[in-house]
Amino acid sequence: MATIAAVAPPGANSAADITDKALVGEGLTKVFGGFAAVKDVNLSVRRGSIHALIGPNGAGKTTCFNLLTKTLTPTRGRILLDGEDISRMRTSDVARRGLVRSFQISAIFPHLTVLENVRVALQSSFGTGYQFWRSLRAVAPLNQRAEELLEQVGIQDNRDSPAAALSYGKKRALEIATTLALEPRVMLLDEPTAGMGHEDIEPITELIKRVAVGRTVLLVEHNLSVVSTLCDRITVLQHGEVLAEGSYQEVSNDQRVVEAYMGGIDE
């Protein structure tokens, strides 16, 4: 943690702010053809925490998430990563600065092998991505790190099989391994347990908990039992605005939140 604090740019607003908050959204607004999907959302994710973004359907979770991952550009407001304004940056530039997202549908490369999937991500910082004249021996030094990452998520036995052949849960694990390959300081996970059977949810929750050590994680999640076991802090959205924020205990006792979820999709 100390090393990360040292990396943060000095001399910005207040030192405590920067070291404490890994990711900040200030007054985020996104308007789609006159309809404000997200209105003036202020969100700050504490460094080292697991932070959840929840809310009933249509609350603006996905839009908010897409703004933070730079898939969408905000109509108004700023996004700060370690105090640096990233509002106008490309996804790829943000990824190189340590903010990496995962996708709702398992974002893997189905025709590559499991090892190759992770190696592609490792190439991002290794700098061989454009070397079309060299043989694969050039990326052999990455294999060991790739294998470590596969071991970390428990799919090392599938190393050489095509990613398309993996089970749903293992695809998710592979995606997390690929994300970890970038050594992200901040990970944004889009509904990590979406579409999963009961038996897959627990191992993935465990896995997220394990890889979140020393990192900051923000996730969008429907499954409230996952949120309650995993997350330190929760932001509840409704109608594109922040309804409540706090620990699971605080939020679940909040009368407004209970009302927002009544008759909703409460699981």
Partner: peptide, 16 residues
């Protein structure tokens, strides 16, 4: 090549 690996990845899933 190392590049070929990235190229195939782009084909499979560009946003990723």
């Amino acid at each position: 090549s190392p590049y070929g690996e990235v190229l195939k990845a782009v084909r499979d899933n560009q946003p990723r």
